[in-house]
Amino acid sequence: MFFDETEDKLMRFLVDPHTHTISSGHARSTVRENALAAKQAGMEGICCTDHGPAMEGAAVEFLVTVLSGGPEFIEGVRVVNGTEANILDYSGRLDISDRYLEYTDFAIASIHDGIVMPGSRTQHTEAMLGALGNPYIDVIGHPGNPRFEADAEAVVEAARRMNKLIEINNNSFIYRKGSRPNCLEFLRLCKQKDVRITVSSDAHICYKIGCFEHAVRILGETGFPEELVVSRNLAAFSEYLCERRTRIETACKRGKAEKETR
Rank of each mutant, 00 (worst) to 15 (best):
A159M: 08
H112W: 06
D89H: 09
A38C: 07
E5H: 06
I74R: 00
R121A: 02
L94E: 07
R254D: 05
E33Q: 15
E258I: 13
I46D: 11
R160S: 06
S29T: 04
E61H: 07
G144K: 12
G69D: 05
G141E: 11
N34H: 01
L36W: 11
R188M: 00
E239H: 06
E75K: 03
S120R: 10
M1I: 01
E227W: 03
G57V: 07
T122C: 00
K208L: 13
T198E: 06
R161T: 07
S238I: 01
S29F: 03
T246H: 10
T104C: 15
Q40Y: 02
L219I: 02
N182E: 12
T83P: 02
V116T: 10
E239R: 13
P17T: 08
L184M: 14
D194K: 14
F224W: 03
E7F: 08
R78D: 03
V64F: 06
C48T: 04
L67H: 01
A152V: 14
E260K: 13
G45Q: 12
M55K: 15
K9C: 09
E221Q: 11
D98V: 03
Y103K: 14
R78N: 04
A154G: 08
M43R: 01
N170W: 05
K164V: 05
G144E: 13
R147V: 14
T122R: 10
L219M: 03
L241H: 05
S91E: 15
H124L: 04
R217M: 14
D89I: 04
G133A: 13
E213A: 06
R160K: 15
R254Q: 09
E213N: 08
F106T: 03
G25Q: 13
T6Y: 12
S110L: 01
G223H: 00
S238H: 05
T250K: 14
S200R: 06
T65F: 00
P225M: 07
I87M: 03
A257H: 05
K208Q: 09
C47M: 11
I108V: 15
S231G: 02
A154D: 09
N171S: 14
R217G: 08
A27E: 11
D98E: 15
A152W: 07
E260W: 01
V80I: 15
K259C: 05
S201M: 08
H51E: 09
A236L: 12
S172H: 06
E126V: 00
H142M: 04
M128W: 01
A37T: 01
R99S: 06
Q40T: 10
P181G: 11
M1W: 00
F3T: 09
G119M: 10
A109E: 13
Q123T: 01
S172G: 14
V64L: 10
P146I: 14
F3S: 01
D194L: 07
K253F: 04
I137N: 11
D113Y: 10
I22E: 11
H51F: 02
A54C: 11
E258W: 02
A236P: 04
E56V: 08
P143T: 07
K39M: 04
G52N: 03
I197F: 10
G255K: 14
K39A: 13
L165E: 10
T125I: 06
P225E: 09
R262S: 04
E84R: 08
R93N: 14
A251D: 09
L187G: 03
F224V: 06
Y240W: 09
S91P: 00
A107T: 15
T250P: 00
M55L: 14
G42M: 08
